[in-house]
Design a protein around this nucleic acid. Structure first.
Lengths: 156, 156, 156, 156
DNA sequence: TTTT
DNA sequence: TTTT
């Protein structure tokens, strides 16, 4: 039984093609960003669109679905939990934080240029993205390689 | 401050064109059904789709958006609360119950035959349904007319 | 991957001691009611408390936790899904519906007369209710016996 | 109508007495942390408690309720949205990010050492924290003063 | 039928 | 930094 609640619900569009990796032990990891649009009043009292960007991460089977069906622009509904990782930045010596959403459930809603969104979770089966195990040569964002994460650290 | 939590999140497709009414005082009321698809194991242990139907009701500005943009087949995300109304059935003398979702927030995701679902909340502005104040001549479902609901009964 | 979303979040108090049964196959089933309090404006425009009652059902391990820790008055947070069962009433010949929340996750928050609520999932370990496999001799509410539900019908 | 969904649900315990400020225009701002407890399998496959910390911020009336009723240890349920602010750190010249939950709704569940948690929104009325308009003399965390936020920037 |  |  859960002792607390840490739940996030997001519906928005994927910012870039997801980045797919695997841990040393073969666990699939998908990282991507999601933009959620909101209407909020600006300083002048006018309604203006405001976009919030979220860092998402998915593991295992969910990562494979991301790999195969999620691309830049895909409209997604996800449920997940908030996690904040921290590390000491080698250059500045400062403590840095990165907040991510660990995706537990996902519903694909569509992608620009396709009629997919209307079909009740629809997406083209031909959407399959190729598998990409590259680790980016250099990344200003901390990733699991940088932080020395291994399969043993994945908590499920 | 809320004393409790009663929150519902649904993502699915609208079953029929919504029914739009107005109370005597002019409050717009939209009623419609939403199907949510689920994958569940059947008696034989196979994964099978299972559809759950929900009765939704929206008031005021939300009802107008339903009237103008929601049709049979529209894919919707909604947030709302559960409400169960009860009344004594005149024919059988039995107490009857009807559970509805009062819609507080709504995001349109698309409609079959249009590319709308993919555009981040997209829908065609030309989608406008005409206003329909008819009360169905006969309805086996209790509706607000049947139960004598007036503007004074609307709790907000 | 889910094709739709059907999610309910409730926080409130349990109305009566839960009713515990087992199916012929030994699956534990717990049924109970939960009251969620809300503040809403009444017909006169005054804020008034309004209570909504929900029918909850839990299976397996969750049912056992209900059996052991949940009593009349317990404050609970639950996540679940909406399900509406229907059957033909033998007396009136009418179709009847019963909407229930199938509980997936549960967090115990406290019980009147105990300090439990403050303890982050707190409840007295001595709270253990005795196991009750009785099926109520007569029930005006449709239950799983009435509707002929067997283990094979339980969809997970 | 919302164009996207950005919703967070948290149930946990407050880490420290909230920090209360007011903007130049008199808008109340409450900042506090919330710990959500989770059970997760560790590297050895054992279930272990894991605590996630969240930065919460509340404005206006909600900030006043926080000021008056929320203290270190209070058990809270909140709904809100994720917001990430960024700024250029003056010392290191690096871009820094801070993710916060903007609290929209709140339900107080209890506080250690009181029976409050069981009372359906219970808390001692005598809990009233004194109003604290101090801005911390020095803070390594960016706050609204640091980032030059004024009333005009508050988007509602 | 809960709770304050 | 909370809580059990």
């Amino acid at each position: 039984m859960a002792k607390g609640v840490n739940k996030v619900l997001l519906l928005g569009n994927v910012g870039k093609d997801p980045e797919i990796r695997a841990t040393a032990g073969g666990t699939q990891v998908a990282s991507f960003t999601l933009a959620t649009a909101d209407r909020a009043k600006d300083a002048q009292g006018n309604w203006a669109d405001k976009t919030e960007w979220h860092n998402l991460v998915a593991f295992n089977r969910t990562a494979e679905i991301v790999r195969d069906y999620v691309k830049k622009g895909t409209q997604l509904y996800i449920e997940g939990k908030i996690q904040t990782r921290s590390w000491d930045d080698k250059e500045s010596g400062q403590k840095k934080y990165r907040t991510e959403i660990l995706v537990n459930e996902m519903t694909l809603l569509g992608k620009p240029g396709e009629g997919g969104g209307s079909s009740g979770g629809g997406y083209s089966k031909s959407n399959t993205a190729s598998y990409d195990q590259r680790t980016p040569a250099s990344s200003s964002q901390p990733d699991y390689a940088d932080t020395g994460i291994t399969d043993d650290d994945i908590p499920f």
